[in-house]
Computed example of a mutant assay.
Amino acid sequence: MWPRIGGLRTLALGNPGEMRANLNALVLAGVKTATAGLLTDEYATENEELEHVGERLALVDDHDALLGVVEVTGVEVVRFADVPWEFARAEGEGDRSIEEWREGHRRYWTGVGFPVDDDSQVVCIRFRLVSAGDGGIATGDLGT
């Protein structure tokens, strides 16, 4: 089960360290508005349900400290080979083509123990940043 903050599931992007810091900075800057996960490995391993439209997630750093809150605006499960370029661009990670996105994600998931092939099921999540900044989200009702 993924950690919770104020009743919200956490969104811990990438690997801890430089990667997570960079991805979080992209979200907080409004550049990254999507992320992808593996259905049969990441969700099944953690016994988590898919996110749903309208759900709010707590964006966290390496120490599970709250950085911001995002709201899910879309969720779709597609084959790895069928992830569209429009979605890959919305991840905001600087990929110049869908092939580059696929190679980078294949390398990442394989590196964390989840090798993928064209038929691997990918959860494509779109979101928008709803709150961020010092003091504004550390307390209170994070769901509103």
Rank of each mutant, 00 (worst) to 15 (best):
135 G>C: 05
94 G>E: 10
10 T>C: 14
102 R>M: 01
100 E>K: 02
123 V>C: 09
30 G>H: 13
51 E>F: 08
9 R>Q: 13
30 G>N: 12
16 P>R: 00
137 I>K: 14
58 A>N: 12
85 W>S: 05
52 H>W: 12
17 G>R: 04
20 R>E: 08
69 V>P: 08
57 L>W: 07
109 W>D: 02
109 W>Y: 14
87 F>C: 11
141 D>Y: 09
89 R>F: 06
47 N>Q: 12
143 G>H: 13
139 T>H: 13
143 G>A: 15
87 F>I: 05
85 W>T: 02
93 E>N: 03
108 Y>C: 00
112 V>T: 06
114 F>G: 00
128 R>M: 03
99 E>A: 14
45 T>R: 15
113 G>S: 02
105 H>M: 02
17 G>Y: 09
63 H>C: 01
97 S>P: 01
109 W>K: 07
92 G>H: 01
59 L>W: 02
59 L>N: 04
127 F>A: 09
57 L>E: 04
72 V>M: 10
97 S>H: 07
104 G>P: 07
35 T>R: 08
51 E>V: 07
130 V>F: 02
119 D>H: 14
1 M>N: 10
23 L>N: 01
57 L>D: 07
131 S>Y: 01
48 E>A: 15
131 S>A: 15
90 A>V: 00
52 H>P: 02
127 F>W: 04
51 E>T: 09
61 D>K: 05
70 V>C: 02
78 V>G: 01
36 A>V: 06
32 K>I: 08
57 L>G: 10
124 C>H: 03
39 L>A: 07
116 V>D: 04
134 D>F: 12
50 L>Y: 04
12 A>F: 11
112 V>F: 05
125 I>D: 04
125 I>H: 03
1 M>A: 04
42 E>I: 13
10 T>S: 10
119 D>Y: 15
96 R>T: 15
12 A>V: 12
74 G>I: 07
106 R>S: 10
51 E>K: 07
117 D>L: 05
7 G>H: 03
113 G>M: 05
65 A>M: 14
25 A>D: 09
37 G>K: 11
113 G>Y: 11
84 P>T: 04
25 A>E: 10
43 Y>A: 12
73 T>I: 06
47 N>A: 13
34 A>P: 04
35 T>P: 03
10 T>R: 02
105 H>E: 01
75 V>P: 05
88 A>M: 07
97 S>D: 06
60 V>S: 09
122 V>K: 05
76 E>D: 13
133 G>K: 13
17 G>K: 06
132 A>G: 09
114 F>V: 01
56 R>P: 00
93 E>V: 01
18 E>L: 13
106 R>N: 04
17 G>D: 06
133 G>Y: 11
24 N>D: 14
5 I>S: 03
37 G>N: 08
